[in-house]
Nucleic acid binder design. Structure first.
Length: 428
RNA sequence: UCCCGCGUAGCUCAGCUGGUAGAGCAGACGGCUGUUAACCGUCGGGUCGCAGGUUCGAGUCCUGCCGCGGGAGCCA
């Protein structure tokens, strides 16, 4: 059996290709059968006088998404999409398909998500998920190439990551358990064992968000590096993001074309990225007439304004303490702030990375936990890391779907995960 | 949780200031040597989201509920 992607090398040769019917156009004496096999799409030409009566009858009755094996000869022909087509001699029906719900036309979001298991076959969806897979591979390759050790962190947890209000709770043999919303505390633990580590997996947030940038289950990669300060952290993020974009440009050209992505917007994504402190950002926002009070966290509107100042992703660093999580290290130069950064993607895609240097001083960390009213006993093991050889370290979390959403230029990140989990959507 | 918008055929939608429903696609049948979401013709297909209300009369106006979409907050 041959694959569609190999057909240009098999010109004038007889082949058999198996796949699914994208469309059939039947005329009086000739029919066109468009076949998708997962490696590509090819048009088969069936001439009535050249095939058996049974074959013609089968071809003219084929429906969208029927699975078939098609035998024929590969021909170069300018009229064929892709330049090559199949002159069909015989067709075998493998699996019939009656009244396939998704038509080659506009559909509503709800309908498409209800049929996500079938929607995956559509060209835009295949392109988006292919880019996702490439970016995932790029993540592993980049970190492997820099001697990071992958640490798989638990999904069922007793400890708490950030804020307790947004956790999915479940029963664990009579005990309360939570689905992990970050693997950070665990990679911090593995840091003294391997120096550079990362985790990459699904995370869960019970936030009732209804925006194009939110999922309740999303994938996050979280590198953590010993002896790295906040600046080192940003430099790593910059190289990391550049590498992902490079890989997408290098290996997903056809997919980005299907998606209609403006490649010049991606080609400008090269280091160094601009770095602007929270204080500078607030100053500039106010100078531009947007009233914004120092101390508040930046909202979606402010993030978009800031990212529009630049042609590539931008770091906003050292936010006020109150706006950020308890584990971030106090800024010695300005104790109102912490050593942290967000990375804002261009074109309104918002925050794709949140990172920080971690608080490595036991007393300060404990004080912060108490200030936030967090359950101290849940963090006992985490505090141990500051008792037994504490060390400066930094890390960050990059949201995969947001990053791929930005790279592909899709309007909503729900399309960049095979089976999105959203508020009100658990199926299919 | 809050704000805005939308629920009409399997799908995407039209239906003006109230007079009990229409198109395209999909499906079935017929026609057409090369189409690119082919085209042309014929046919079948509807508790107008649900429940009340106003009215002689409601898809259309009002109220409530449900569902969906977009945004805010929160975050990646």
């Amino acid at each position: 059996m041959s694959q569609v992607k190999d057909l240009p090398r098999l010109a004038e040769q007889p082949v058999t290709v198996s796949g699914w019917i994208a469309s059939v156009r039947v005329h009086a004496r000739v029919a066109f059968v468009v076949l998708r096999d997962g490696t590509g799409v090819v048009q088969g030409v069936v001439v009535k006088s050249a095939v058996s009566e049974d074959t013609w009858a089968l071809v003219t009755s084929l429906t969208q998404e029927s699975c078939v094996a098609v035998g024929g000869v590969v021909r170069e022909d300018a009229r064929a999409p892709g330049g090559y087509e199949l002159t069909v001699s015989d067709v075998e029906l493998i699996g019939a398909s009656d009244e396939y719900p998704i038509q080659p036309k506009e559909h509503g979001v709800e309908f498409l998500l209800d049929h996500r298991h079938l929607w995956l076959r559509s060209s835009m969806q295949r392109a988006g998920l292919k880019v996702r897979a490439e970016v995932e591979q790029a993540i592993h390759d980049f970190l492997y190439g820099r001697d990071f050790v992958r640490i798989d962190t638990p999904i069922l947890t007793g400890a708490i990551g950030e804020s307790a209000g947004t956790l999915f709770e479940t029963d664990y043999f009579g005990e309360r358990a939570f689905l992990a919303q970050t693997g950070q505390l665990y990679v911090e633990s593995a840091c003294p064992a391997f120096r550079k580590v990362y985790c990459f997996g699904p995370t869960f947030r019970a936030e009732k968000s209804k925006t194009r940038r939110h999922l309740t289950e999303f994938w996050m990669v979280e590198p953590e590096v010993a002896f790295a300060d906040s600046n080192d952290n940003m430099t790593l993020q910059e190289a990391f993001v550049c590498y992902m974009v490079e890989r997408a440009l290098e290996r997903c050209g056809p997919e980005l074309e299907v998606l209609g992505r403006d490649l010049s917007r991606l080609e400008s994504v090269v280091a160094p990225f601009p770095r602007i402190s929270y204080c500078e950002a607030v100053e500039r926002l106010n100078a531009e007439g947007r009233k914004f009070e120092w101390g508040r966290d930046l909202g979606a509107v402010e993030e978009t304004l800031i990212s529009d100042w630049f042609d590539r992703p931008v770091f906003v660093y050292n936010y006020p303490k109150e706006a950020k999580a308890f584990y971030m290290k106090e800024n010695p130069a300005d104790p109102r702030t912490v050593l942290c950064n967000d990375l804002l993607a261009p074109d309104g895609y918002g925050e794709i990375i949140g990172g920080s240097q971690r608080e490595d001083d036991l007393d300060r960390l404990l004080a912060r936990i108490r200030e936030e009213g967090l359950p101290e006993e849940a963090y006992e093991w985490y505090l141990d890391l500051r008792k037994f050889g504490t060390f400066p370290h930094s890390g960050f979390g990059l949201g995969l779907e947001r990053t791929v959403g930005w790279i592909t230029g899709r309007p909503h990140i729900r399309e960049l995960v095979p089976f999105p989990r959203l508020i009100n959507r658990l199926k299919p």
